[in-house]
Amino acid sequence: MIDYFALLGVERRPAITEEVLKRAYFRKSELLQSDSAEAGELSAVNAAFRTIANPATRIQHLLRLEFGDPGGGQIGADLGELFGLIVKVLQNADQELASLSVQSSPILRALAYRKLDGLRQQLEQVERELLQRESGLLAEVARLDQSWLENTAHARRPLAQIALDLTFVQKWLSQVRERIIRLEELA
């Protein structure tokens, strides 16, 4: 497998600032465009940037390079609880959206739309909750990053857990946001 950190020429560790990563990516892209590289190389550099820019995929890639597998297993217990709530809110939203989208009378739709404010508030509440988790997890990554060189082996399990949790938080966030936008769309 390709070492994306090496391909871009950035340090192989859990955290990396956006500035540093972008500078490396742009430098590499410039180099490749000037000697008219083939699409395959450009694709690899693009994939490297994409993988490393997202903390969840970055950590999984890092763990794979260091230990041969990204680890992981089950999401954290507190996330499990939140998951129950998210499922309920999403189902509720989908039901409302479905019944609203088959409504052909503009006036009936408009009146129904007014009643959806509660639903929107629920979705926004869940979104805030998820954003909080996300920033908590990222703070944890930053902490582990500080002692990464001395404590690589110790960081393995917590990082695997964080990467997995982050993957789910990101997925739920995009699902929740999609519903918020669809509400707007029905207006």
Binding site: S104, I107, R109, A110, L111, Y113, R114, D117, R120, A187
Partner: peptide, 23 residues
């Protein structure tokens, strides 16, 4: 009647949106 109240519906949604934004 659906067709004739299209504009009314738009006004309703405008109002709901600005109320939500204010909140």
């Amino acid at each position: 009647l659906d067709e004739g109240t299209q504009h009314l519906a738009t006004l309703l949604i405008d109002r709901a949106m600005s109320e939500a934004a204010r909140r």
